[in-house]
């Protein structure tokens, strides 16, 4: 597991070390929906997840 900062409230969010980019997590403190993200330097972080759009789903 790794701890990453919630971009909304700054709390620490624990995510599995084998997480995939695009995997969703919820901040235990503020409830924000967050997405695991890896940048071009291979640094992992969390960003606010995309909202459900009109073309989503089956």
């Amino acid at each position: 597991m790794v701890n990453l900062a919630c971009p909304v409230c700054g709390s620490s969010v624990e995510v599995p070390s084998d997480s995939l980019p695009g995997e969703l997590f919820e901040c235990g403190d503020c409830g924000a929906q967050l997405e695991y993200f890896v940048d071009e330097k291979n640094a992992a972080s969390l960003r606010v997840a995309e909202e459900v759009a009109e073309d989503w789903g089956q």
Partner: peptide, 14 residues
């Protein structure tokens, strides 16, 4: 190919 990881994507990768 995916954008959001759900049960379906994880289980297919497994």
């Amino acid at each position: 190919a995916y954008d959001v990881v759900r049960f379906e994507e994880k289980s297919l990768l497994q």
